[in-house]
């Protein structure tokens, strides 16, 4: 953080930072230099920031296809993320992954991938390792409502409960899998009850309320420390933009217009900002300076990404495990 931020304002700052980073990415996406699919989390910033605010750096996080927020909230390096999206050698995967494959092991952001539920069972393994080694590292896996349609998630609920693993599964329920609504994909039943029936502790709340997300996650962390059972958290939230890409797509009419409008009124960043201003935790001048400072940081990250070279063709053959011939 380039400027000093009071402790109680940091989560807001983190959310604002994620929002501004993604707006900058969206603005420049059409330049055709970011040649990878990009899933933006604009409108959903409170969940990554709230959850990660309850974690330590040593705790481990796995993400999914929409992971800019988790990566940044866990403390991932912005320059490396931007360079990765540009396919450059200084990217966090050396340009091999792009937006859907972020990793920063310095802060235990363990990786994210775009196969729905693909990283869910990996959290069982890091959780088991923590348990066998007797350390206090917690593993968090972020996934969406669509994961409840993947068998591996149900297998994972079973196994984590059986082994009493120190894991938190965080479900961001944004109601849509690409263009398909939840009602077309799942029966009307609480997801929480599935986890609960497996013997997990559960919590749920408003995913656009940063304080609520943070508090619910802190409680889950405390329960793990107390008795070691796995924790399932569900947060309702909403994606503002198209599933993949920088644009709005409401002209496609797959979501009711009043639904989109009502969720936009519940903007997690704006809500928090209003609260901080009204309780006089920050002034408008400070707010403007945060925004300015973040925009400068973003500008530097784009400069970093653009200045970084592309990976050399010969580097393709690294890390093959089997020798190509």
């Amino acid at each position: 953080m380039p400027i000093q931020i009071p402790e109680q304002v940091k989560p807001y700052y983190e959310m604002l930072r994620i929002r501004l980073v993604e707006e900058a990415l969206a603005e420049r996406y059409s330049e055709q230099e970011m040649r990878c699919p990009m899933h933006l989390c604009i409108g959903q910033e409170a969940v990554p920031v709230g959850v990660c605010s309850a974690l330590k750096t040593s705790d481990m996080v796995f993400g999914n296809h929409r992971s800019h927020g988790y990566y940044l909230a866990k403390g991932g390096d912005l320059n490396k993320m931007t360079a990765e999206i540009y396919g450059k050698v200084d990217g966090c995967c050396g340009g091999r992954g792009g937006s859907m494959h972020l990793i920063d092991l310095d802060v235990n952001f363990m990786g994210c991938t775009p196969i729905v539920a693909g990283t869910v069972p990996l959290g069982l393994g890091t959780g088991l390792a923590s348990k066998l080694r007797g350390n206090d590292q917690i593993t968090v896996v972020f996934f969406g409502d669509g994961c409840f349609e993947e068998g591996v998630v149900h297998e994972s609920f079973n196994y984590a409960a059986l082994m009493e693993l120190p894991v938190i599964f965080v479900c961001e329920n944004n109601e849509y899998s690409v263009y398909t609504n939840l009602e077309s994909r799942q029966p009307d039943r609480p997801m929480n009850k599935i986890a609960e029936a497996h013997g997990w502790d559960v919590g749920s709340g408003n995913g656009n309320d940063l304080n609520q997300v943070a508090k619910i996650t802190q409680q889950a962390v405390s329960r793990i420390k107390a008795h070691g059972r796995p924790q399932f958290l569900e947060f309702d939230t909403y994606r503002w933009l198209e599933h993949c890409g920088p644009n709005e797509d409401d002209h496609l009419d797959y979501r009711p217009a009043d639904q989109v409008a009502s969720w936009k009124k519940k903007c997690p960043v704006l809500q928090m900002q209003t609260q901080l201003l009204s309780e006089k935790s920050i002034s408008q001048e400070e707010l403007d300076s945060y925004r300015q400072s973040i925009l400068e940081e973003i500008e530097l990250s784009f400069n970093f990404a653009k200045a970084s070279p592309f990976p050399s063709p010969e580097s393709l053959y690294q890390f093959s495990n089997t020798n190509p011939s």
């Binding site: 869910v120 069972p121 990996l122 069982l124 393994g125 088991l128 591996v152 297998e155 196994y159």
Partner: peptide, 9 residues
Amino acid sequence: NALTGMCIG
């Protein structure tokens, strides 16, 4: 599938 993922993790 989950246990393979567990091993990988």
